[in-house]
Amino acid sequence: MFIDQNTYQIAFDAYLRKGTPIELALKQDKSTGFYIWRTRGDNKVRSSHAAQDGKVFAWDNPPSTGHPGEGFGCRCKAEPYVPAVSESLNVQMVGVTDTGRPWTNRDFINHYRNGNGVPVRVRDFGHLRKIVNEYWGTVSNRLVGQIADAARIQTSGQFSYPFTNIYQMQHIVFIIGHTTIEGEAKGQVTFQKNGTLRISGDCGFELVVEFADPLDIGIELPGGTPYPILDSWSARMSGTIVADGNKSWIRLDG
């Protein structure tokens, strides 16, 4: 709940002039779960409330005086308080293991001529780990920010975020060239009382490209059959982020 300061000021002026009680809802914003007790700072403040000025209380654990505004004629306010939060959203790769020796260009061409179009997995020709490391080093900050923003839209419950793009991998495996990597993040987000979101879930990744041009000149050579190069892996994600993206460093433009 957001407390409009102008509305509160009008209500407070009415209280001073006519003795009209201020609605309790105008004094209490419970969105963060915590508040700082603030008095009016004048000689009308009762001593028990003055002793609590500037102190932090939880809405579910009131002080002996009750919360601000609950006592008769109380003019004190509850200023929302968000405890310090250490943000993190960790994405840990799973299943990134090479099972075969690294192929050379000659190996790719031999499979083009003799493989009858049978697909090959990146891990089977020994380059998955390098490609995943290159990919994650390129997209990690952006993708984590996108996942965080998707979780903020949902606020509570299940959320998902699909992604896809083309990446340059020639410097790792020249034969592969332009490589499409796509996937989807799926998880659970839970809103916490301190204004944060708890996130957990998984990401799935898929790499898809076709070997169809051994000379990289846009022409398929006779005597060969194009074949798919593909693979997949996953990641586990978990962490805590600030629900208000404007106050968080983990966001798309962060």
Rank of each mutant, 00 (worst) to 15 (best):
F2K: 06
T7Q: 15
A11L: 02
A11F: 01
A25S: 15
D29S: 14
W37Q: 12
W37C: 11
T39I: 09
R46F: 08
A51S: 13
G54H: 04
K55Q: 09
K55P: 01
V56A: 03
N61C: 01
N61D: 13
P63D: 05
C76D: 08
A78S: 08
P80W: 03
V85Q: 07
S86L: 08
E87W: 02
S88D: 09
S88C: 06
N90Q: 11
V91L: 05
V96S: 04
T97C: 01
T99Q: 06
R101Y: 13
W103K: 06
N105G: 14
D107M: 13
I109E: 14
N110K: 14
H111I: 08
N114S: 15
P119V: 08
P119T: 10
V120A: 08
H127R: 06
I131P: 00
V132C: 03
N133W: 04
S140F: 07
V144N: 08
I147V: 14
A150G: 04
R152H: 00
I153G: 04
Q158G: 07
T164H: 09
Y167N: 00
T179N: 15
G183N: 11
G183A: 13
N194C: 03
I199D: 00
C203Y: 07
G204N: 13
E206N: 15
E206C: 07
E210I: 14
P214K: 06
G218N: 10
G223F: 08
Y227P: 00
W233H: 02
S238C: 09
G239Y: 09
T240N: 11
N246W: 06
